[in-house]
Structures are given as structure tokens and as C-alpha cells.
Design a protein around this nucleic acid. Sequence first.
DNA 1: CCCTGATTCGC
DNA 2: GCGAATCAGG
Length: 111
Amino acid sequence: MEWTDERVATLKGMWLSGYTARQIAERLGGVTRNAVIGKAHRLGLSTRPSPIRRHEPVSMPRVVERTCQWPIGHPGSPEFHFCGEEAVSGKPYCDKHCGVAYRRSSQDSGS
DNA sequence: CCCTGATTCGC
DNA sequence: GCGAATCAGG
């Protein structure tokens, strides 16, 4: 079928009225809902009262920034990992490792 | 398993 | 530009 001005007008009207792509396709005849959706996109429609919501491209809540980044084991070895405990707010380490990381701030107490 | 729209991709 | 196939979710 051809997308005449009349058929396009029907598509627009129904789409904007909230009809599903399938309903529109049935009304028009000779087209599938895929055709309707594809055409709707080309018309600049789309994103309208749709029952589903796609996941936004937002990566997971910065879990990494909330977990202790204190290295455990030797870097490069299979056993190497980070502490992973809940980190102190604003710090890259948990409370325990903050103590290790930030002690002797003004003096060297030796090994 | 039915449905929804979104996107991709060969034509 | 078109729309089936596919994707991603309800």
C-alpha cells in the first residue's frame, strides 16, 4: 500500500489519539503494525503514551564510588581485588582502610 | 504466550 | 522511504 496523504493523516490522527499501532494498521488495512510504527517514526512521531519504558542509558548507580577501593593482594594476581566494604562518604575507602590510608599524616612512624 | 512501541537493516 | 525482523519490556 502507498502512504497517501489521506492514509498518513489517518495514521497521525489515530497515533496522536492514543490508538495502538496494531489498531491503526487494522484500520488502514494492507499494513502491519511494524509499517505503522516505522512510518510514525519517519513522520517525527514516536515516543508517546506507550505502556512500556525503555531503560535509560544510565549506568548503574556509582556503586564503585561507594565501595572501598582498598586493594587486597598483589595487583595483577588472580587473587587481587578491592575491599568492597561500604566506603566513608567522600572517601574512596571504608572506615577501616581510611585509618590505614590516612594515618601518619604528619609523621613517619616507620615500618 | 499474549501484547506494546523502538530500533535495525536490507531492500 | 519502506517494513520485516528483531529487540526490550509489560
